[in-house]
């Protein structure tokens, strides 16, 4: 029951969220839009890793998800510093 719920309901919903982030990353009109989309992509990728850790009974993937969250936070802060020194056109 758990595997069918994961593969039929949970994974497609998370992947649709990831796809929305990718579409906004492509069409986003300005750079801060793309950074917000990147944040959503990182969050939903961590969600996919967590769901995979349950689906294949391998709890070591949780460490991957936590390191992934840390690195995505650092990259968002680095992008914010980059825009702070930003002049010229978007």
């Amino acid at each position: 029951m758990l595997s069918s719920v994961i593969y039929i309901i949970v994974m497609p919903l998370v992947c649709v969220g990831l796809l929305g982030g990718f579409i906004r990353l492509v069409i986003g009109p300005t750079l801060p839009d793309r950074i917000v989309a990147f944040e959503l992509i990182a969050t939903s990728s961590a969600g996919i890793i967590v769901v995979t850790a349950i689906a294949i009974r391998q709890p070591a993937f949780l460490d991957v998800a936590s390191v992934w969250a840390i690195i995505s936070f650092l990259s968002v802060i680095a992008f914010a510093h980059y825009i702070e020194r930003w002049r010229g056109r978007p």
Binding site: L13, G17, G20, V36, T43, S44
Partner: peptide
């Protein structure tokens, strides 16, 4: 997470 993807679109 699906709602988040919908909202960003």
């Amino acid at each position: 997470i699906f709602v988040a993807g919908l909202g960003i679109l």
